[in-house]
């Protein structure tokens, strides 16, 4: 009799806890966002290595500044340092949780600031295997979620982009719940639902005892056999950036 009661209690508890995969997936994404809250601003140098299918490489270097905003999406400023003919070319992006992002481009040779369309999400960023949407601020609202499975500390969640202009049918993200929900791997499926790219994050470092940042992103395109490696260095979370560092005037200063 006692055993039966225990069984019933256990069953009820399980039922109560059994969330739908959608709810669980969303909760994991929110937990990941929560774990990264409060970094305020960051500055990082980035070396991008593009590898074609014959193994030939070319490099770009850039500096990215990010300002964390909670009510709306983050602001970011990207400046190219090389190749030298595009040195100073810069972009300013205001990410929005809902709706399209606002983006300006600065062309240093003629000193022109140009508002550009953020419509092109699926296009490659400067010839790399990263699409614009892969590098834009990851806001929870931009996807719907489905929890797939748990493997030890790893939580695997399917994410479907809300925006029909996305180049993906879905992404499958592997979170590490014991390491501040940092992402270990992302798989991208194209609109025909075929595996397009795999992004592996490695050489993680913990900053300010809270923020996990990978020093290396490795993107492999399975359909074109091209690769792009991003190496991050000189992470700075103490730069004290504010809204004043993310204006069109600041964009022109950055690219001068």
């Amino acid at each position: 009799m006692k055993k039966i009661i225990v069984l019933i209690v256990v069953t009820f508890t399980m039922l109560a806890n059994a969330q739908s995969p959608e709810v669980k997936g969303l909760e994991i994404a929110k937990a990941a966002e929560q774990a990264d809250l409060g970094f305020n601003s960051s500055v990082v140098d980035l070396k991008m290595t593009l590898k074609n299918k014959n193994g030939q490489t070319s490099e770009r270097s850039l500096t990215t500044k990010t300002l964390e905003l909670t009510e709306d999406g983050d602001k970011s400023l990207i400046v190219f340092n090389s190749p030298k003919d595009v040195k100073g070319t810069s972009t300013l992006t205001f990410t929005h949780k809902v709706g399209s992002d606002d983006q300006w481009l600065f062309l240093p040779s003629i000193k022109r600031v140009k508002r550009i369309s953020s419509n092109n999400k699926s296009g490659p960023f400067v010839g790399s295997e990263f699409a614009y949407e892969d590098l834009s601020s990851q806001e929870v609202e931009k996807y719907t979620y489905k929890f797939l499975e748990e493997k030890g500390d790893l939580l695997i969640v399917e994410q479907d982009p809300v925006d029909p202009k996305s180049g993906y049918a879905r992404r499958v993200i592997t979170y590490n719940k014991n390491k501040g929900y940092r992402i270990e791997k992302a798989e991208f499926y194209d609109r025909k639902n075929a595996l397009l790219k795999t992004l592996t994050y490695s050489d993680y470092k913990l900053y300010k005892n809270k923020f996990w940042r990978a020093s290396k992103f490795h993107m492999v395109n399975h359909q074109s056999n091209k690769e792009t490696i991003l190496n991050f260095s000189n992470y700075n979370f103490d730069s004290g950036l504010s809204d004043n560092d993310f204006t069109q005037a600041a964009l022109q200063r950055a690219g001068k």
Binding site: S117, N120, G123
Partner: peptide
């Protein structure tokens, strides 16, 4: 008006 990423390879 920009038709972006027409060929899936970045052609705009």
């Amino acid at each position: 008006y920009t038709f972006s990423n027409i060929d899936g390879n970045g052609l705009d």
